[in-house]
Design a protein around this nucleic acid. Structure first.
Lengths: 119, 119
DNA sequence: CACTCTTGACAACGTCATTGATAGGTTTCT
DNA sequence: AGAAACCTATCAATGACGTTGTCAAGAGTG
């Protein structure tokens, strides 16, 4: 079936907020704000502790890239995420894939000032 | 051919900056900033006077809608425009068209906080 | 000539993003 | 049990941004 390695399921909630924050180099406060803004929805333990999945972390890295590298504010991030969901396409990655190429990039934001003909 | 009514060509540069500014209810200074930011590219007379077309005005109205109503900043607007061009689709209108409907809306931004069902 | 345009600089005003501290309370781990 | 990390909520400092506005000196237009 589809659960051969459930320990690697990218949707499995694993990181507590301090860990997630250190992974993405951000203040925990910032992550709580992202959640208030509806940009990330970490799971919760039965006792209300936030648990971030690998997917959540990738999403946060996208937020960081958009805000820190591209200067987009949280309202803009919201629109972009909403458009992605609306279109059912990973439109953001299109910013980094030139022409018709269809890369398999797993959804992680580009490390720095991505290539793609230097944006 | 394609120029039956050139006097109504939406790409024809017609409005000087003060006129364009009053049409969209914005300070001329703001329009110059939009141009500096690369968000609008009005034509110029041989003597360097800006002339905005109907298309330019619509584009500015989109910028105003995104910034004033949705809170997106200019960096966010830039990304959205870039994505539109990249995808060759009017993605922004998708925010206001529910499901599979394919409206012919001529690219003008919704008047106020339009709800998808009433566009 | 009077008006409007051009660029460039400078400033004021309010808002936003992020980090940080604090308080009082709950969960987890040793 | 006690320390450490979590929760919510609030308040504040910092720097940056968006918009409007003005001033200057020059060029185009009616």
């Amino acid at each position: 079936m589809t659960f051969r390695r459930p320990d690697r399921d990218p949707t499995r909630p694993v990181y507590v907020i301090s860990v997630a924050a250190s992974i993405v180099s951000v203040h925990p406060r910032t992550l709580r704000i992202y959640e208030e803004e509806g940009l990330v929805c970490p799971a919760r333990t039965p006792t209300n502790i936030r648990l971030y999945s690998e997917q959540d972390v990738r999403r946060i890295m996208w937020i960081r890239h958009l805000t820190q590298n591209l200067g987009v504010n949280l309202a803009g991030v919201r629109i972009l995420f909403e458009l992605e969901e609306r279109l059912g396409t990973r439109i953001l990655e299109r910013l980094y894939t030139e022409g018709t190429s269809e890369e398999r990039s797993e959804g992680a934001p580009p490390e720095k000032a991505a290539t793609a003909a230097e944006i």
